[in-house]
Amino acid sequence: MLTFYGQEVASRLLIGTALYPSPTIMQQAIKASGAAIVTVSLRREAAGGKAGDAFWSLIRDTGARVLPNTAGCRTVREAVTTAELARELFGTPWIKLEVIGDDETLQPDVVGLVEAAALLTREGFNVFPYCTEDLTVAGRLIDAGCEVVMPWAAPIGSAKGIVNPAPLALLRARFPDVPMVIDAGLGAPSHAAHALELGYDAVLLNTAIAKAGDPVAMAEAFRLAAEAGRTAYEAGLMAPRDFASPSTPVVGTPFWHAATS
């Protein structure tokens, strides 16, 4: 069973709660996805008093566990403050930590990320850092106390799928016991299946479901793909080869003919 910070997690698909046509469709999509954890982006202005209460309660109604997110934070200080507000608002030590380093690509500022992760861990948070596929950065995050690491597939909202599979495979192999979630850049269910086939423990996405023509049907498609990818990983994938290897030997074909044809 997959566990994050000692909590068993029933689904390998985590989804976001932004950008849906309406909260009703968001609730239906969460249900169809089977997600047990949903991320919630917190804007500072929505944290004071009862400001965003109505929306938060619609999310709580789904029964999914909330993973608040420091989306859009650009500095360590801003991310830490947002995390503190989120803990107060949602009553959870869990925080998806985003420190954005580039406005165009929303690429993580990995230096600020490691610093913020260390600060928040000391404050008792369970940090889920959004990072790149860089091996050293992942190591530093784990040293800082992160028990889960969340590398990107591609930039947020880009729908490109896994653009750098080799370093992601390396990262997975180097930290086999750390739960790892592919977060951001997934556009199609096949991308989610790919991530789980690589041995990642789960995937996290938002836009590809929320902005689909039919978000509820797309949520279902991602649920099936995540299950397919994980099942395939557990079943043991066939390793790629450099040349075709016929499953039935062609008896009687002289080998010199095979070599020149």
């Binding site: 804007r43 202005e45 929505a46 004071g48 400001a51 965003g52 929306f55």
Partner: peptide, 10 residues
């Protein structure tokens, strides 16, 4: 379009 009942502009 922000999920908030705060009515000031940020």
């Amino acid at each position: 379009s922000i999920e908030s009942e705060d009515d000031r502009v940020s």
